[in-house]
């Protein structure tokens, strides 16, 4: 019973921190990624990548890569990273994994948020222009899906949009607030 109490407390406080974190005014580039619940007999958490491409389809910023990081004979799950086909082509294949501040363990079903400050070097270095936010998910014995959200940089006014996946991704949203 005591254990359960602690667990609930831990979850609530984690959730609270996440919300509080997202609300900080200097974190003005918000992405949410929903990993849908699957009713399947064999479920593995999907590999997910999120990155930004410019108009020439060049990847200019990696926001997140979630994959199986536990060590195995085959090298910490990196063997399956090319299944994130678009990300692998545009960025992954030229990276040395793990990447600080980008790679992380695969995540369970649910909504996950990513927040970045406008002066995050990955964003601050982007020349002004049109960009596309990509979110790609690939699941072992499952499928693959890519979602895109176009946006303009730098941010001049509030921007908020969302798209919905059909198979491997739920709702993906992008919210931008210009610097105060």
């Amino acid at each position: 019973m005591n254990h359960l109490y602690h667990l609930v407390l831990a979850i609530v406080s984690t959730a609270w921190t996440t919300i509080a974190f997202a609300d900080k005014p200097n974190k003005s580039f918000h992405v949410t990624i929903e990993i849908p619940k699957m009713n399947v007999s064999e479920y593995h958490r999907p590999y997910v990548a999120s990155w930004i491409q410019d108009e020439n389809r060049k990847a200019v910023a990696n926001l997140a890569v979630w994959y199986q990081m536990k060590d195995s004979k085959e090298g910490a799950g990196t063997k399956w990273l090319p299944d994130l086909r678009q990300w692998w082509r545009r960025s992954g294949r030229s990276l040395e994994m793990p990447v600080d501040g980008v790679s992380g363990a695969s995540r369970p079903a649910g909504k996950h948020s990513l927040s970045f400050a406008l002066n995050d070097p990955r964003l601050a270095d982007m020349p002004s222009g049109k960009y596309i936010l990509f979110v790609e998910a690939a699941r072992e014995v499952g499928g693959r899906e890519v979602l895109e959200i176009a946006f303009e940089w730098p941010i001049t006014k509030d921007f908020s949009t969302k798209v919905a996946g059909e198979e491997e991704l739920g709702e993906v949203s992008l919210k931008l607030h210009p610097a105060e």
Binding site: E74, G75, T78, K79, R93
Partner: peptide, 8 residues
């Protein structure tokens, strides 16, 4: 033809 990992 497209591989990744420690020693694929």
């Amino acid at each position: 033809t497209v591989l990744s990992g420690a020693e694929p």
